[in-house]
Amino acid sequence: MVGELAPCGRCGYLGLLMTNLGHAVIMTTADIGMDVVEPRREGSPLAEEVLEIDRVSKRYGDVVALSDMAFDVRAGELFGFVGSNGAGKTTTMRIVLGVLAADSGEVRWSGRPINLRSRRQIGYMPEERGLYPKMKAFDQLVYLGELHGLSTADARRSASYWLERLGVAARRDEEVQKLSLGNQQRVQLAAALVHQPRVLVLDEPFSGLDPVAVDVMSEVLRERAAAGVPVVFSSHQLDLVERLCSRVGIVRSGRMVACDEVDRLRAAGPVRLAVNAPQAGPGWTAGLLGVRELDATDGRTVLEIDDGVDDQMVLAAALATGPVREFTRQRPSLAELFRNVVSEEKKS
């Protein structure tokens, strides 16, 4: 395989999957008989269903936690929020939920400053999980549903639905503290979903989950996004973020340093070439300008080339050493982009 990778294929696949899940959502909400007001049906144009974080800043004494943090999450979008520990992800989410006040800046929902009323329509999963340890899972979900404005009957229906959907229906009458951590996590997600939120803000929803639970969680997030709900979640599992998210924001030291579609971010990253030329000796790239050798093992070399460097020139140099068995143009993965960002942080 020579030339560019074709990420569009996967993109199309993702899109298709989301559409299918969209149908599934409409069926399931009808199934549970809830009076769900989906954003689209309210007659407001889709474009307005946007969660905007506009130049939000926050300091703790001399420590700057956030500095002009800005991004938006649109309807139907899965937004991945990545950054190293202490970069400001949790602080941002807590400000969105109003449990922390920003020093400056504004959070808007559908163009209006967010208030208690609009916050009630957010499903929130805090970083430090929060449920009453001695309350039964089902009772807890019903209570939270009611606090968010559901009638008791609707809250019970919705709680049953989500416990079933997330595979913890058998544990509905157990105290939360007696559940395994993975099951507590599922109940926690159910708590974020029980009131049919119109926005989802999830802090590290995947941490501590087994692979099956990760699949269930991913499916639910895709499904909600497909139903028109803006979903923002933070995670350190970058392969997951790359697979799930349409857009990603990378935070460093309280600032958004990169925020775009995953493929565009990757495309903007440095180009890499993997070359397999068995007869090429060490240092065969030494004479090439703008080309750095990252790794060389068993005749296979990974190179990073500067923008504007012609990869065909490298191919020619490789062919000059003998046969070339592989010549692949690669884009860095999200994990690699992230590492670059973190290492820049260390340098500064």
Binding site: R94, L116, R120, I122, Y124, P126, Y132, P133, L144, H148
Partner: peptide, 17 residues
Amino acid sequence: VEEKSSRVVEILLATIR
């Protein structure tokens, strides 16, 4: 303190005052 130590207060106060 139970609400604080279990952090459930963060979910509650995202909804009520």
